[in-house]
């Protein structure tokens, strides 16, 4: 999401980080990962005026050809890689999906930018790029970004899209409950990866915060979402530390913390639903 925000900023989108989404939900990913609802791309396109399109290709020749063609067509590319392969805190010891902005192919190198670890454009050997793009956690996934930025009035669109997220989130709370059950019964974890969930809530808090939020009632909601994101990050960091042997995270405690988060998620959904129904800026 940071990479999308960076590309949007380059396209002239003001406050791009506050236009990611909104998306709010849960879904199960491979391994011990719990993801967010991941419906943020369509909302981001509406809020930024950019055209954003997902792609995935696991054949290297076709992937490289598609990326070169998109770059030649003046599109910008956000590409998934494996943190294990690149300059990052996880290099050589953990496989995590990460995003880079791909600037260009240059002979036996590619030029990329990493908004988290190394924001300035820098070279990556082509063989490393190929390996990391086709890694299981990256899966040849990417996002093509095109278009000229308009300046849509965000508050109505935020309200519209958030209204659509609430019932989806309510349904997907069952995914979280099942995840907690799996942790409790030893089928998942304790090396859980819930970073995507935390990131989605952080982005959502920025989307509904002023000036995007339709009115003052949303400010405490944005604060509550930021607090929720912080709490998800704490659990993620604890699991991360435990995985590396720098701390202990008993399954019972993990279950307790996740259960607490589930309660907070449900409560916030109820609160937001009430706001959307009473005096909503876009009543239906």
């Amino acid at each position: 999401m940071q990479a999308v925000a960076a590309v949007a900023t380059e396209h002239g989108v003001p406050d791009a980080a506050a236009r990611l989404g909104p998306s709010w939900g849960f879904r199960r990913l491979a391994g011990h990962r719990l993801g967010g609802g991941e419906r943020w791309l369509a909302g981001t396109a509406r809020l930024t005026g950019l055209r954003l399109q997902r792609f995935a290709q696991t054949d290297w020749a076709e992937l490289a050809q598609a990326e070169r063609a998109a770059l030649a067509d003046s599109a910008q590319l956000i590409v998934a890689v494996d943190s294990f392969d690149i300059e990052s805190p996880y290099r050589d010891h953990e496989h995590l999906t990460h995003a880079l902005v791909l600037h260009r192919y240059a002979g036996d190198e590619v030029v990329v930018a990493d908004m988290t670890n190394r924001p300035e454009p820098h070279s990556l050997p082509l063989h490393v790029y190929q390996k990391t793009r086709l890694s299981p956690v990256a899966g040849g996934f990417g996002i093509v970004c095109r278009g000229v930025v308009g300046v849509p009035p965000p508050s109505d669109i935020v309200a519209d899209r958030l209204r659509a997220e609430l019932p989806a989130h309510r349904v997907e709370l069952a995914v979280l409950e099942q995840f907690i059950t799996d942790v409790r019964e030893g089928r998942t974890g304790p090396d859980v990866d819930i970073a995507d969930v935390a990131a989605e809530r952080l982005a959502l808090s920025q989307v509904v915060a002023p000036p995007n939020g339709p009115d003052d009632r949303w400010t405490p909601v944005a604060d509550a979402l930021a607090d929720l994101s912080h709490r998800w990050y704490i659990v993620h960091a604890m699991a991360w530390a435990a995985t590396r042997g720098t701390g202990t995270l008993r399954p019972a405690r993990l279950v307790r913390m996740l259960t607490n988060l589930a309660t907070r998620e449900a409560d916030l959904n109820t609160r937001l639903s009430a706001i959307m129904q009473v005096g909503s800026p876009c009543p239906r």
Partner: peptide, 25 residues
């Protein structure tokens, strides 16, 4: 960083045999 504060928290918990409650996080 926030990430390292969690490492500190977990190390303190191990050292002193305590568990930080929700309200203290």
């Amino acid at each position: 960083s926030s990430m390292h504060s969690v490492s500190v928290m977990m190390a303190v918990e191990e050292e002193f045999g305590v568990e930080f409650t929700e309200g203290l996080l």
